[in-house]
Design a protein around this nucleic acid. Sequence first.
DNA 1: TTGTACGCGTTATCAC
DNA 2: GTGATAACGCGTACAA
Lengths: 333, 333
Amino acid sequence: MSVTIVDIAKKAQVSVSTVSRVLNNKPDVNKETQDKIRAAIKELNYSPNSVARGLVLKRSNIIGYIASDITNPSFPELARGVVVKAKEYGYSVMFFDAHQDNRVEKEAIQLLRSKQVDGIILSFSGANRDELEKLRSERFPVVQIYRKSSKSTISTIAIDNVGSGYRATQYLLSSGHKRIAHITTGDLTQSGYERMAGYLKALAEAGIEADHHFIQQGISSVESGKVCMERLLDLEKPPTAVFASHDVMAIGAYEAILDRGLTIPGDISVLGHDNIEISRLIRPHLTTIDTFKFKLGQASVDLLIEEMTAHEPQNKEIVFPGELVVRDSVRAL
Amino acid sequence: MSVTIVDIAKKAQVSVSTVSRVLNNKPDVNKETQDKIRAAIKELNYSPNSVARGLVLKRSNIIGYIASDITNPSFPELARGVVVKAKEYGYSVMFFDAHQDNRVEKEAIQLLRSKQVDGIILSFSGANRDELEKLRSERFPVVQIYRKSSKSTISTIAIDNVGSGYRATQYLLSSGHKRIAHITTGDLTQSGYERMAGYLKALAEAGIEADHHFIQQGISSVESGKVCMERLLDLEKPPTAVFASHDVMAIGAYEAILDRGLTIPGDISVLGHDNIEISRLIRPHLTTIDTFKFKLGQASVDLLIEEMTAHEPQNKEIVFPGELVVRDSVRAL
DNA sequence: TTGTACGCGTTATCAC
DNA sequence: GTGATAACGCGTACAA
C-alpha cells in the first residue's frame, strides 16, 4: 500500500539503516549514497510514518490542548497562540473541547494520553484536580491556563485578575465616579472572584464603602449580564458606572441600558474585562481590560516545553498583567 | 516506564494475546480469566497505547481538520460540530490553522498524513487543488467545507450561496426597497461571488437594473465593510438598503452609517449573511442569513466517514440552504 | 479457551 | 561508511 522505508531502501539499493540516517540528517554518510536515497524518496513520494517513529522514540511531537469550551470568545486567539508556538517547536496540536463538562475533560485527558501526546495544555480547566495531580505524580507534563486553584501544584499561565479588577475600578474612580456597581460571576469562577477582590480593594482605598446592592452576581453570558444590569437600574439610586467582570456580561448590560432608552456613557458608564473581539465593534466601543490571549497561548507552550525538558514538575506560575483599553463607554463626570 | 500489555499479562499470569482479547472485547474468553485480567488492568492503571495499536491496525482513529483561519468567526461552531460528531464515531480530531496561507495548508496536509490520520476535513480551503487531487488519486479520504471549485472532485459540504443571496435580496425587495446596494467580496471569494449572483438574480426578476455604483467590493473584514459603506453614502443618491455578503462587512457598514449620525434601519436598512455571534448582539440586532455552522461541521464528519468506508472517492456534494433570521436592521418602506 | 510467533515502520546498537 | 538486527507495544493467524 503506502511506501515505506524498506521500499526506498530497495530502490536505492542500500539498507534501511542508511536510509534512516539520511532521513534524520545523521553524519557519516556518503554524498553519493545520500543523493541516491533522496532521489528514491522523491521518486516514490515517500514520507516517514510518524506513528512508527513515535513508537520507538517514545514521543509523538504532539501536544494536547483541552479547551473547556471551544465557543468561549477567548478561545480562538488563545488556540492560535498555542498552535503557532507549538509549530515553532516542531509540535502539532491535538484539540479537545470539554463542553464545560468535567467528565468529558477527564475522558479527554485519558484519550490524549493513550494517543501518547508529549504534554497537555488545559485552558479554563475545571475541577479535575485529582486527575491533574495524578498526571503530576507520573511526571507527565501539564500546564494550565487561567485557572489556578490555590492548592494546585500544576504550572500555570495566569492573568493578574486582582490587579486588573483594581485597575478598572480605579479608572472609574479617577473619572469621577463614586457610585460604581459591579456585575460579576462572583465566586462561581476564579476569575470573577479575583476581579471582584480588585474592585473591592480599589473602593476601599478610595474610602468608599462597598454597597452590596451594587454587586450583582450572574454567570458569564450576555443574558445574565442583562439581568444583572436590570436589577441595578431598578435601584432607587442607580450607579453612574458599572464594571463587568467579563465583556459578555458588559454587553448584556448594554442591552439593558439601551433597551430602557438610556445612553452609554451619557447616563451610565460601562467598563468590561477581556477585550473580546466584539467589544471593539459594539457601540459605543467598550472600554475594557485586554488580556493578551494570543500571548498567553504562546506562553503556555513555552512553559509546557520547559516542563517536558525539565522532566520533573516545575510548579511555575507566570502571571500576565492586564491592560486598560480606553474606548468610548466611560465618561468623566 | 509506562505499563504495557506484557506487564498485565504477567500480572494476570496469561499470555498477551488473551489480554488483547479482553481489551478488544473478543468472544471466547473465560469469565474468570477475564476478571483476572481486568483486575490487573485496574491495579496497574493500564491504558492501551493507541500508537502501537495504530501501527498494526493501520488506522489512527484520528481525523485531521484544517481551518484556513482559526480566527474566522464561523470557526468555533464549525469546529465544535466536527469534534462532537467525530467523537460519536470514536474519532479524535487534530486541528491545524493554515493562517490563510496556502503553503501552510499544504504543510498541514503533509503533516497530517505523516501522523497517519484516517481522513482530512478542510474548511474554507484555498487554492491547493493539486494537493487535493493528489490525495484523491491515492484514495485518501478528504472532504471540503464551503469551497467547491467547479472542477473539484472532492466531496464537499457547501451552503447554497446563490439561494441565500437571492433570498436576502428578495426580502429587501418585499420590504419595499428598490435602491438596494451590495457590499461584497465579489470574485475574491467563492461565497461572495455566488451570493452576488443571487443578488443580481433577485434584482433582475424584480425588473430592477443593477447599478454598478451600488456594488462595492472589498475583503471580508469590518474595516473594509466600513470603507465600502462610506463609498455608498457618498453617492448622490444613496441606497435605502444594503445587503452585505458577510456579517463582518455588515458590521463595518454599521460603523460608517452610525458614524455619520444616520440611523439603522431608519435611514438605511442593513442585511448581512452568516449569522455570526456578534450579529445578534450588535445594535440594532442584525437581520442576516443563518448558515448552520454547527450542523455543517457535523455533516462534514458524516461525509468523511462515508468516504472512509467507501474506500473510493464519492465526489458527493451536500448543500445546505441558508435561513433568513429577521431581527431589527431592516425596515419596511 | 489459551499461547506462540510474526508483522506493523521506524530508530538505535552493534558489527563489519 | 554501511548493514544486520533487536527493540517499541500491540493485534492476529495459527497452533495447541
